[in-house]
């Protein structure tokens, strides 16, 4: 008797389900991001201190949130793979890593471009910026580790273990603005006591965050579908080789 998660995590069923919902999620992401950009540029006021530069927030913050959220998802998928041995969990972890790396890279680049006119510098080695840079290197490390091991099964296990160990970075990043000297502002949305940011700026930010999240889900579904197809191609090629070898042996006998 299969559990609900086992039924949903079946690769063939995933291909059917994701194939039907993917265009809708991608379309919803495009509409929400377009609306978010309209709000960000035409409705949200400039910041009273930073002026127009604060409009970088509407892409920087969603990228930074996704950088961490995607890593949490990679770690959960890794846990699912190590504990339940389900191949779809490995597919999820493997395909989310490059996407998470891209969002972390964008959080660093947009933050740097926001920092230059605001702080007077592109970069400082403070706790927040440095811990996000380490997260980026962790993503690169996961990709490098997986691609450096030829045995797919071993590569999956080792990257899953590294992904679980690396989850320690998430609380460090989250609370890095609360300890030590930093130019980065403290949390102003996800904090105890509620957001401190004005609704006129919070609304476009949340709309953009929703749009980016939908976009990530669509990209992750597509990447997972590609990976499942890649594994099917590999399995068929392997079966073809084994069949050819068997027929050669039979002919020799």
């Amino acid at each position: 008797m299969q559990t609900l998660t086992q039924r949903l995590a079946n690769p063939t069923r995933f291909m059917e389900l994701s194939g039907s919902v993917l265009p809708w999620i991608a379309g919803a992401a495009a509409v929400v991001i377009a609306y978010g950009l309209y709000l960000a540029f035409y409705v949200a006021p400039p910041d009273y201190q930073q002026g127009e530069t604060a409009r970088i927030m509407y892409i920087h913050v969603p990228c930074a949130w996704l950088a961490m959220a995607v890593y949490a998802m990679v770690a959960m998928s890794a846990f699912g793979f190590l504990v339940f041995r389900h191949p779809l969990a490995d597919v999820s972890a493997k395909t989310a890593v490059p996407l998470g790396a891209a969002f972390t890279f964008l959080a660093l680049v947009t933050g740097s471009l926001w920092g230059r006119p605001t702080w007077g510098t592109y970069w400082v080695w403070d706790a927040r910026l440095t811990s996000v840079l380490i997260l980026f290197f962790l993503y690169l490390g996961l990709m490098a580790l997986r691609s450096s091991i030829e045995d797919d099964s071993l590569a999956s296990k080792l990257t899953a273990i590294l992904a679980l160990v690396g989850i320690v970075m998430l609380p460090i990043i989250k609370f890095s603005v609360d300890f030590g000297n930093t130019l980065h502002q403290p949390a102003s949305v996800l904090r105890v006591g509620g957001p401190t940011i004005d609704t006129a700026m919070l609304t476009p930010l949340l709309v953009m965050a929703l749009g980016f999240t939908l976009m990530f889900v669509a990209m992750h579904f597509k990447a997972m579908r590609n990976e499942i197809l890649r594994r099917r191609v590999r399995a068929l090629q392997l079966a073809q080789v084994e069949k050819a070898q068997a027929s050669q042996l039979a002919a020799a006998e």
Binding site: I56, H60, L106, V109, T110, L113, W114, P117
Partner: peptide
């Protein structure tokens, strides 16, 4: 800076 950030994304 704003256009460069959006362009990078």
């Amino acid at each position: 800076f704003i256009w460069a950030a959006y362009g990078a994304v």
